[in-house]
Design a protein around this nucleic acid. Structure first.
Lengths: 190, 190
DNA sequence: AACTTAATGTAGCGAGTGCTACAAGAGCTT
DNA sequence: AAGCTCTTGTAGCACTCGCTACATTAAGTT
């Protein structure tokens, strides 16, 4: 008869993945110690023990999540480069709108809001995530692009604007804008 | 000897401006009844009395704030139209980054985050505010623009992306992108 | 003046918040 | 075995949360 629960030692490293999963699903703002602890199979008591206080816990979580995001981007690198900026943009937009990215996006806007309000760990995480995404996008630019660096930054700006308009129910508006800019084909969806 | 406090009857209409002022300064997420009430010179008891419950209060607040935003935009219509899209974009970007707009922007990202999370009143407010801003921007497009409708939507997308990158500390990235797109001059600031 | 209704104050409830005091077990070294 | 440090459980504190019960005042209306 084997022991049903070996009860392994927990540390920040073993806790963070489970905590992050809970945060990605339920958000950071409304996250309180007890639900977080339950999601990770511990108690609020232990969260404070391992992280000191909630602020440091959140900071650690944001760092970790930023790392997860980074890894997810590395995972999603396409084999073949797109041939045009238009195709590049379409690809990354499709990726950003994919259902598996949706919890991430929901959390993302919360991080942006936290950055704007100046909540301790938020801006650092947001900055890191954007930096990583830019790097990734630069690597996805067409090979013969005349200005990959500037172009990637341009596409990033457009991409984020497009995603934002999408989350507030104005996907059509963004699409028509892209259409006018020559960065999108005419296609129906909303 | 006049009465020091005539204690006028309060209604939703008299309360909303003061409540909105508090929300614009301190945010919506962390807004709880008692601080809100104090900011409006009442009690939590009366907020519930007038609005029913907190969700309806928030909904009313978002509607009201959306109206305030709309009015602020109407106020900020320039007499002379810009001559180029570039100038148009520069103007609206300067306006959006102005210090008097900053509390609004901070609140805005919170509204976007709320929309993404599906919190009841948020998406409606965000949609209304974006619709209004688009209308405003269309009115600010150069007179000889070949496609004012599409152009305004394009500029909106770019603008929102630029503002977002700015709030997370990547203003430089957005600027270099705009520079590469031909929508901005070379100028130093960050 | 009697009655009705709207508006407000006081007090508090049950639940949840971050965090702590205290003690006990677990595994290690000496 | 004794001591020591790391990890964990149990209770609870002081506070805030949204909301309600109850009573009171103010202002019409009849």
């Amino acid at each position: 008869m084997p022991k049903p629960d070996p009860k392994p030692k927990m540390s920040r490293e073993t806790l963070l993945p489970q905590l992050a999963a809970h945060v990605i699903e339920h958000g950071l703002g409304g996250a309180s110690l007890r639900p977080l602890a339950k999601a990770a199979g511990t108690s609020d008591r232990m969260l404070i023990y391992h992280f000191g206080d909630k602020e440091r816990l959140v900071r650690n979580l944001l760092e970790y999540i930023s790392g997860v995001y980074s890894a997810a981007l590395d995972m999603a690198i396409g084999q073949d480069r797109p041939k045009t900026r238009q195709e590049c943009f379409a690809r990354v937009l499709t990726l950003g709108r994919g259902p598996q990215m949706q919890p991430f996006m929901t959390l993302w806007w919360e991080i942006v809001a936290g950055s704007a309000r100046g909540i301790p760990g938020y801006k650092d995480a947001a900055e890191a995530m954007m930096a990583k995404q830019l790097l990734w996008l630069e690597g996805q630019m067409p090979e013969d692009d005349p200005d990959p660096a500037g172009g990637a930054r341009y596409l990033m700006t457009l991409l984020e604007g497009t995603l934002m308009l999408g989350t507030v129910g104005h996907a059509r508006m963004a699409r028509e804008g892209l259409l006018a800019s020559g960065l999108a084909d005419a296609q129906a969806e909303d």
